[in-house]
């Protein structure tokens, strides 16, 4: 089985979000970049398929040279090879188009992407890859087993979950739950050394225009002061929620 794991390179979850160039650009100054958490869950599941079912795992990122350390980290975790499509992501569609091309030419059986990235939160790339390549797609996956050409996938739905059956090739959008938190791997020295020798191929992009453009960013307005309520005065809390906030 050939697996492709899509890796988005995103600001660390603790990052303060700031903008430059008159609020038109994300300010990367002092920001640490990480593998998007959903992608890390997906990569960890791919490692299981590699170790238990002999899968070959390729990681891919659409981005410029500054994303290579993130791909090397994925190699250090255990992926076999990496691809970087040399393209500056403009919107979800332009990224999906690049990835769809990698999927088509690489003949992958299983494509794993995150349900959403924590920077742009588009929640669209995996679905668009599936739409562009016309292959089966299951989103919000919290479990997957593959047997031969068939996959059984557990998907989270609002208020519960459902089990679906489908066939490869397949694109899945994954989230927390697809692996246990304790299965996540921190690259060790040996992994890091080996990652240096693993192939990282740079592909030139196919032509793709963006369908949406970022105009300007805004930060939320500062919050008003909190109202404190004493533990022996909880009637007041009920009163405030009813009469002032009007939420109960």
């Amino acid at each position: 089985m050939k697996i492709l794991v899509c890796i988005s390179h995103v600001p660390d979850t603790t990052s303060k979000i700031n903008f430059t160039e008159d609020n038109t650009l994300f300010d990367t100054n002092g920001v640490q970049f990480i593998i998007n958490p959903n992608d890390e869950f997906g990569l960890t599941r791919a490692m299981w398929f590699k170790e238990k079912q002999g899968a070959h795992v390729t990681v891919v990122n659409v981005g410029q040279v500054d994303t290579e350390p993130t791909l090397r980290k994925a190699l250090a975790i255990g992926a076999d090879e990496a691809i970087r499509v040399n393209f500056k992501p403009a919107d979800g569609f332009s990224v999906a188009k690049q990835l769809a091309n990698v999927v088509k030419t690489g003949g992958y059986d299983l494509v794993i992407a995150g349900r959403e990235s924590i920077d742009y939160n588009g929640g669209m790339v995996p679905g668009m890859i599936a739409g562009l390549t016309n292959i089966n797609f299951v989103n919000t996956c919290i479990g997957i087993e593959v047997e031969g050409n068939h996959a059984t996938v557990i998907r989270e739905i609002d208020g519960g979950k459902e089990t679906v059956r489908t066939s490869l090739p397949l694109v899945i959008g994954v989230q927390k739950g697809i692996v246990e938190e304790s299965d996540l791997r921190i690259p060790n020295m040996r992994g890091i050394m080996m990652a240096r020798k693993k192939p990282l191929t740079v592909l030139e992009p196919v032509e793709s225009n963006s369908e949406t453009t970022s105009v300007i960013f805004e930060k939320p307005a500062p919050k008003g002061a909190i109202k404190m309520v004493d533990t022996d005065n909880l009637d007041e809390l009920v009163n405030l929620l009813h009469n002032e906030a009007k939420v109960i």
Binding site: V215, I216, K219
Partner: peptide, 8 residues
């Protein structure tokens, strides 16, 4: 943050 996005 918020983003104003134009659709082309």
């Amino acid at each position: 943050a918020f983003e104003q996005t134009a659709i082309n």
